[in-house]
Each structure stands twice: as C-alpha cells, then as structure tokens.
Simulated scan of single mutants.
Amino acid sequence: MSKSYHHGSLRDSLLEAGRRQVLEEGAASVTLRGLAKRVGVSHSAPLRHFDDRHALLDAIAAAGFAELIDELESAAQLSSLQARLSQYARAHARFALENGPLLDLMFSARAGDGAAATSAAEFFALGGRLLGERAERAPGPLPYLLAATLEGIGSLVSSGRLPVERVDEVVDEAVAMLLPAVQERLSS
C-alpha cells in the first residue's frame, strides 16, 4: 500500500492522478484499476471512495468546476458589466487552454444528481450573478448562452483550431457581441 493511503488521502490521490490522466490521455483512458496502479494501492482500494468509474469521473468533473468557479469568482467583484463579462470570458478561455480535456469532461458529464451536477449548477448560478440576475431565481437563459459561447471558444482553443495568439481577440469580440443583448435583457 502507498504511504498516502495510510495517511487517509487516497481519495485525493485518486482525484489528482485521475485529473492528470484526463489531461494527458483523455477521460476515456481513466479506469479505477489503472488509477489504483498509478497511486500504488490494491486494485480494489478505490472502491472504498468511488462506487465505479462513473463516480470517479463525476468527482473529477466536480473538482474541475470548483477550480473554474474559483477562477471566475474575481470577475463577479468588478463593478461594470463589461469588465465582469470580459474577465469572466478571459478566465474561462485561459482555463480551457490549460485544461481542455478536463473542460470537455466537465461539460460532457450528464446532468443528474452527482457532484458534477451540483457544481455545474453553482457554475451557472455564478454566471447568472455575473450577468446581474437575482440569486433567488434559477438562472435564466443568458448564463447558458454565455457558457455555450465560451465553451465553444474553449473547445476551439483546446483542439488547436483557434491559435493561442488569437484567443483574446475572439474573446473580446464575443463579449462585444453579447454585451448589448445582456444589457437589453437586464433593462427589461
């Protein structure tokens, strides 16, 4: 058994190793048995923390959402809508550039009652707050439109179809296109 397992951090070790594997080889390559081997524990040890591969991937996706939300939170503190939208979009694109396969996993996870679904709901709620929606309501369509736009840009970035040196230009143009629609929606 590995030293980390004895210290009670097997779950964290599996999540960290799983994330690295998602980033290096894609989510399809991740297995409980393979991760057990990577972290140096018996092939059944991961089952103490994850019922199956799906539960492990759900936890990796949830951790990815938590990290993305942390990066995006600073945008919500800015006073102008344009500044919030710009910083949010740039942070999302940067996350995609650095974590493309993880972002793919996060947004391909099925909606349900798992940890990734809860984290995704928090992500969309943050988008709603950023766009000026009231927190007591479920997010309207704008946070989903914003996420879809940024996910599209992120996908282009992570696949190499959008050259890194053009990311800021494309993000700025997306913000310029979305801003009037968001302002109009908020004023009505």
Rank of each mutant, 00 (worst) to 15 (best):
H6W: 15
H7R: 14
H7A: 15
S9F: 13
L10C: 02
L10S: 12
R11V: 06
D12M: 02
L15M: 01
A17Y: 09
A17S: 13
G18Q: 08
G18W: 02
Q21G: 00
A28K: 12
V30H: 11
L35R: 02
V39R: 06
V39K: 05
G40F: 08
H43K: 14
P46D: 11
R53P: 10
H54Q: 12
A55T: 04
L56Q: 05
I60Q: 02
G64H: 02
A66N: 11
A66C: 06
L68F: 11
L68Y: 08
S74N: 01
A75T: 07
A76Q: 13
Q77L: 09
Q77P: 09
S80N: 04
L81H: 10
L81E: 08
R84T: 09
L85Q: 11
L85M: 15
L85N: 12
S86E: 11
Y88G: 00
A89S: 15
H92G: 10
A93G: 04
R94K: 13
F95T: 00
A96F: 05
P101G: 06
L102T: 00
F107E: 06
R110Q: 14
D113L: 02
A117E: 00
S119T: 02
A121H: 01
A121Y: 03
F123A: 00
R129I: 06
A135E: 14
R137S: 10
P139V: 01
G140T: 04
G140W: 03
L145E: 10
L146H: 07
A148I: 00
G152Y: 02
I153D: 13
G154A: 07
L156W: 06
S158F: 01
S158W: 11
S158P: 03
G160T: 00
V164Y: 14
V170S: 12
V170M: 12
V171A: 03
E173R: 13
E173L: 15
A174R: 05
A174Q: 07
V175T: 11
A176H: 11
L178D: 12
P180E: 08
Q183K: 15
Q183S: 13
Q183R: 13
E184P: 07
